[in-house]
Design a binder for these strands. Structure first.
Lengths: 158, 158
DNA sequence: ACTGTTAATGGGAATGGTTCCCATTAACAG
DNA sequence: CTGTTAATGGGAACCATTCCCATTAACAGT
């Protein structure tokens, strides 16, 4: 198990126990893959990575586990417009410097995590959330902010 | 053809001609459906609406036309997490009071368009866009901001 | 208005991501 | 170590979307 993941691992293991879920090989492997990358992996990519370590695992388990992790708030699920879901582990949004949003190239599907301007953003989003909660009597759980456009490379090719 | 849609219709017709596309019955019907609603219709819902007016139309035409409209910037495509794409006609984003974002209930899939706090948002997003464009050499075309949570009704049922 | 060119259509088949089903396996409490 | 049962894996099913191709209709030129 990767060293850098200890914190997340322990956190997740704790949360698993807490909710009465079993910590299986597959689940550990999936968590491990997600902990090690800053990318936005698709279910299939996760499946392939997991396979390298634990070759008997199946696709349905990957999907089931991801759904569980999303429900537990351990993982976030995104759509960037290429028809498949993408997954990213939660690294403690809002409370440290890992909070980020996405910049998506509509041509090559490249996704950049950016953390610039995040402080102003968080401030505004928090205000907006508060206002919206009140006005529409909504319990807001999360937000998604994505910018779409053409990346450096694709911009030039046009 | 609905009265209230004249402006959008003319705009779109103009843009169609301009690009050398034919203005067919199906395309008119689809534009008409999208012009008349403030909802976020799925392809199937649009197909059903179009069918009422023009029963010989087919599903592939709906998808093809929607793709074209999205490419022309006449229609926006969204994902709210229920596995199907949703479409909304452009009513002149940024330049008038129609700019809005979405509030999505993760339980019942209800989507609320909100326009509150939009001025501050637009201001911040514009600044962020400018900064990101520069830093990452990205040509930003659009952004998506969505809040997810539980709506009034679903909140209580829990 | 008529006609020819060809963009656009419609229907069904194919695709591909995701979910479902169920017999088998393995986590973990006692 | 053992029994209970949650979790798994593999394949079939599902469903939104895309593809294919013979047919139709938009519209430019006459």
């Amino acid at each position: 198990m990767a060293r850098g993941c200890r914190r997340e691992q322990n956190l997740c293991h704790g949360r698993f126990k807490e909710y009465g879920y079993r910590l299986t090989m597959s689940r550990q492997a999936i968590l491990d893959v997600l902990s090690k990358t800053k990318d936005h992996l698709s279910a299939e990519e996760i499946y392939h990575e997991v396979h390298k370590v634990y070759p008997s695992s199946g696709m349905s388990t990957v999907y089931r586990t991801l759904e569980l992790l999303v429900d537990l708030g351990i993982v976030h699920k995104f759509h960037f417009g290429d028809g498949r879901s993408r997954y990213e582990i939660d690294r403690g949004e809002e409370h440290n410097d890992h909070h980020h949003h996405h910049l998506v190239c509509t041509k090559c599907q490249r996704v950049i995590n950016y953390t610039d301007f995040i402080d102003d953003e968080i401030e505004l989003l928090r205000r907006t959330e508060k206002g919206l909660s009140k006005k529409y009597n909504f319990k807001i759980v999360k937000h998604i902010l994505q910018f779409y456009g053409l990346c450096e490379r694709c911009k030039e090719k046009q």
